[in-house]
Design a protein around this nucleic acid. Structure first.
Length: 182
DNA sequence: AATACACTCAACCGCACCACC
DNA sequence: GGGTGGTGCGGTTGAGTGTAT
């Protein structure tokens, strides 16, 4: 028998946090420290699992978090660190004071990947020329992007297609412009 | 103005790792 | 050494919002 996941207890709330919940969590941690995350929700009077509380605190409520746009310097640092460390978001975040791993991961996936592709750099290897190792998948087999999930799947598939390999070497091509909104 | 499409990011999930017994 | 519990990490999802048609 494996261990039971922490969030399986019935009745625990999921989804977006309310200002009241945030207030409870911040006040509790300021007064008592977080201690055991598993025990925290009960002590703090929150109907959440400990994991959810930890995530909310580390990614959003911590007082040392710096929010807002990433500077050019931060952007360069993320790209350099990613080329050295790969998807070690927590290690990258440790070098950027006030930024969380989640925030950096999101920024990478939504902005920097596209930016590197546009520059003709493979975001996986940071090599110029986009030499992706992959098996060919026919463009004709791919469905039109009809939803966010579908587009993400499509992104994975096309990133690994021979067709894309060819097209991505030409970031100015009509294909790349259309797919990456360049 | 209504609808469809595209983008962002907070939050969740599952797994791996570590400490403790 | 093996089992269990707690925590952290990376990948993924989907609601909310913005933009285009």
């Amino acid at each position: 028998m494996g261990r039971s996941p922490c969030c399986e207890e019935e009745g625990l709330k999921k989804g977006p946090w309310t200002p009241e919940e945030d207030k409870k969590l911040v006040e509790y941690i300021q007064n008592h420290g977080h201690g055991s995350w598993r025990a925290l929700p009960k002590s703090a009077g929150l109907n959440r699992c400990g994991k959810s509380c930890r995530l909310r605190w580390t990614n959003y409520l911590r007082p040392d978090i710096r929010r807002g746009k990433f500077s050019d310097e931060e952007e360069r640092l993320i790209i350099n660190l990613h080329s050295a460390l790969g998807n070690k978001w927590s290690a990258i975040a440790a070098r950027l004071p006030g930024r969380t791993d989640n925030e950096i991961k999101n920024y990478w996936n939504t902005h920097l990947k596209k930016k590197l592709l546009h520059m003709g750099i493979d975001p996986l290897t940071h090599a110029r020329g986009l030499t992706l190792a992959c098996s060919p998948i026919s463009r004709a087999c791919l469905p039109p992007p009809t939803s966010a999930t579908c587009r993400r799947v499509l992104g994975v598939l096309t990133t690994h297609s021979g067709f894309m390999q060819t097209q991505l070497r030409r970031p100015e091509s009509r294909f790349c412009r259309a797919y990456f909104k360049l």
